[in-house]
Amino acid sequence: MNVGILGCGTMGRLHAEMAEKCGLKVVQCSDVNSQSGKDLAKNFKAKFVKNWEDVVANKEVDIVAIATPTPLHFPMLDMAIKKGKYIFCEKPLCRTVEECKKVIQKAEKAKIKLFVGHVVRYFHEFEAIHEQIKSGKIGEVGFIKMYRGGMPPQGKNSWFRDFSKSGGVTFDCMIHDIDWLRYIFGEVKTVYCQNLIEKNCAPLDYSQVTVRMKNGVLALVIGTWAHPSGFRVKVEVCGSDGLMYYDNMETPLEVQLREQSKVSGTIVPESPVIKSPYQKEWEDFISWIKDGKEPRVSMYDALKAVEIVSACLRSAKIKQPVNL
């Protein structure tokens, strides 16, 4: 099967690599920035196409992978559905709940297989946490604290810095944790959010979300785009008979290079695994296409995730809890 990549930025490049690892062929790619597009085309022996519509319309392309800024997901999904493609779309599915609903309706009608990259569900450490919870090791879970983030998105003109496009750290980044909470503990009842969007601190954002699940489980999710350096993920799960804690700064590898021109190099922690979670999500997607095995993430999950983070943004605006 052949893949067409829309958006050749960070995620587009990663998905091209994963598709290839899974034995697929990247045949075309598109980007408004022709340098990014041409670079990816060269690396994967694909063809760079100026207009993304031409990639979606191409009969040779079986799978469309969407990795453009979030507001562009909707028109791209819309056309890919019309053209009957298999679709891999980065999270968040769309920028608004309404767009998500439209897309799902159309995909249902056209019987399109649409996969959304809620990749945290595939991370080894999160799978391990899930396993430990299921085993009852810490008893019944009552409280979870999740923390994710680091520097604000880099690049002066990055679309991420326009919060109307990215939704800030709450919508773009914490959607991972919130989707995971829902995946493990079921539906969300209420959210309460404070963030920096209304305070005009862009590109800085810092968000604190209280999540109350329907089953009574309580969570505090913190997301940061306000740190001068680093990237941190921390998860603490508290149960009736124990507690478990994960911190991504505890790694098996730490590399620090002596660079001649610089005073000191930074420490880069690494936690290598044979198969990356991104490859795992691609394999799940492909086995859905080939064998009809339902993947771990459905488009309805993706809609729910957008619904919850949209409720968070509303809560931050009205400064009151929002019920789902």
Partner: peptide, 28 residues
């Protein structure tokens, strides 16, 4: 938001609370 799932059935009081506060000047 609060609850008592940490010691369910043992405690009548709350045993886990999550507060969101605002300080003067809008500090969250």
């Amino acid at each position: 938001e609060l609850g008592n799932q940490m010691h369910k059935g043992i405690l009548e009081t709350d045993d886990m609370g999550c507060l969101q506060l605002e300080m003067e000047g809008g500090i969250q």
